[in-house]
């Protein structure tokens, strides 16, 4: 069975992946316009300022939207059906993720459900942020 694809960092995303290995959700904020943003870029996608900084997000957010996938991607057979979600972080930016820690049913997954980050190590280099409902162990 083919394995799931493993991403590789680029220079502007290395801090995100380094943080993930430590269990820290590292995203960026513009010092000029004040907006937090994702995905990583060495300038602000809102105002183009290069005066940007990395910070560790709270890891808390809400379930913005999702699908429950019934056709496994490579390497996902064992957990299908699984939730492919977009989470809106409390800091503002959105990111794709999987929702884990509960059975993948619509009833368990109301839109705007509060969620928090949890980490899955894929390789020595790559750890990814998954999210679970807040309060779930």
């Amino acid at each position: 069975m083919p394995k799931r694809p493993i991403p590789q960092a680029t220079p502007e995303t290395a801090e995100y992946w380094d943080g993930a290995r430590r269990g820290e959700l590292r995203i960026q904020r513009c010092r000029s316009c004040g907006k937090a943003y994702f995905f990583p870029r060495p300038f602000c996608p809102n105002c183009s300022s290069k005066d940007v900084e990395w910070f560790t997000a709270s890891g808390k957010g809400k379930l913005y939207s999702y699908v429950i996938n019934h056709r496994a991607a490579y390497g996902f057979d064992d957990i299908t059906p699984y939730v492919i979600a977009v989470v809106q972080l409390d800091e503002g930016p959105r990111m794709m993720t999987n929702i884990v820690g509960i059975e993948a049913t619509p009833e368990n997954l109301p839109i705007d459900l509060p969620v928090e980050v949890t980490w899955e190590k894929l390789t020595d280099e790559i750890t990814i942020p998954l999210f679970k409902p807040q309060g779930v162990a």
Binding site: P5, Q8, Y66, V67, A72, A85, M95, M96, I128
Partner: peptide, 30 residues
């Protein structure tokens, strides 16, 4: 593997258009 899509979407098991194009629908319903 260095494509931004590989780094920030594919790693979560998207399996082609049926799992990406469709993600907004539940928000519209909501």
């Amino acid at each position: 593997p260095q494509n931004v899509g590989s780094q920030f979407e594919e790693v979560f098991g998207v399996a082609g258009p049926p799992t990406r194009f469709t993600v907004p629908i539940l928000r519209h319903m909501h």
